[in-house]
Simulated assay, not measured.
Amino acid sequence: MTDHVGNVAFIGLGAMGYAMAKNIRQKMAPTGTLYVFDVFRGACERFQDEFKDFGPIVIVDSPKEAASMSQTIISIVPGASEVRDVYMNEVMGIIAIPKNVDRLIMECSTIDSQSSREVGEALKNAGVGTYIDTPVSGGVPGADAGTLSFLMGHTKPSDTDPVSHRLETVAAMMGDPKKFFYCGKLGAGLAAKISNNYLSCSILLAVAEAMAIGIRSGVDEKLLHEVIQNSTGQNFMADKVQPVPGVVPDAPSSHNYRLGFKTQMMIKDLGLGVDAGYATGIKPTMAEAAYRVYEKAAVDPKCIVSEAPSPVGDRDGSSVYLHITATPEEDQK
């Protein structure tokens, strides 16, 4: 158990956050209280009912209420505007809580680095805690298993920085310490994450197109996957997020494109990559091309309507394969 973590505020119980908060509640001291907030209160109620046996879970009405009673704050929300609202809202946000420079704030959302730096500096000036950008990688399966990678905008743990040791401890409750990367300064964790997602989103589309070309050329899909896996085209997205159904048993595609990382989030992350490219003087040709395809897939009924009882829009991004392999007749429907 991690007794020194204290009470924890968890803000954002989406697909990733729900699984991450589960691991926090299961691994924090049973005497500690987990305060949860989400704009959809039903997610909080479901979480409380499912994990209440591990220790106290209190549903609150605002980020401010959750944070004011906690020594550790973790948030993961959809985008920069939501991050700003969680932290910078002068009435209900975390900037309005009592000062405590020892409070650890881990912001796990994938947003632009500049927004993160602005929020972090404002919280530092307000004295409410140490804000660190801590984006994660590994998707819903990694979040559920507690094996996420953490890309942290902070220096490595040291004895002169007590917060850094608590950062490592709390991250280890949700992730694999072998996959912790200390990127040095505020915003750098996000810069690394955006670069990674630039690749992963673009590569997934390339895998879908390559598989479609090979299959339509007469190659058996499982044999084609095996060829790629043992040749120079081998990559994580082909091995783990294979977009062709039935090729990789655990891939979302083999389970009716069960949500891992939805198409709409691909657009957001590629947009961040495009913006970061231009901001650094690099023309993001690959991300721009992939963005245009995912933008069309995001409104394609084949990619957003699932037979599973999940909300519209929550089909995995690998369903882009269904979009690129549609016949002209299907596109006209």
Rank of each mutant, 00 (worst) to 15 (best):
G277L: 06
G142C: 08
G138P: 08
H154W: 07
S217L: 15
P243D: 12
V163L: 10
L151A: 05
Q264F: 10
Y182H: 05
D269C: 14
L199Q: 15
G175R: 11
R258T: 03
F180V: 05
I267C: 03
V227C: 02
A192W: 04
I194N: 00
K222P: 00
L186N: 03
L224F: 02
M211H: 03
S200W: 14
I267E: 09
A212S: 11
I203C: 14
N235H: 12
A143E: 00
Y257C: 00
K268I: 04
F150S: 02
T232A: 12
F181S: 09
G271H: 08
A206V: 11
H255V: 00
Q234D: 14
E226C: 05
M173Q: 05
V244K: 01
R166W: 13
V247E: 08
V247W: 04
R216F: 04
T169E: 14
V170E: 03
G271K: 04
G146Y: 01
D176Q: 12
A208P: 07
M152Q: 02
K193Q: 09
A143Q: 04
R166F: 11
A192H: 10
Y198H: 13
G187D: 10
L259W: 05
S253C: 05
S217Y: 14
A172P: 11
I194W: 03
E221M: 06
P245L: 07
S195E: 09
P249L: 05
H165W: 15
C201T: 13
M237V: 15
G189L: 03
T169G: 09
F261K: 08
G218V: 06
G189K: 09
G175H: 13
T155K: 12
L259S: 00
K262E: 03
Q229C: 04
Q229G: 13
A208T: 01
G139D: 04
E226Q: 09
M173E: 00
A188C: 12
D275A: 13
S231I: 10
P249S: 01
G153I: 07
K222G: 07
D159Q: 13
A143G: 00
N235G: 13
K222Y: 00
F181D: 02
L223Q: 01
K268V: 08
P243N: 12
K268P: 02
V219C: 00
L148R: 06
L205Y: 15
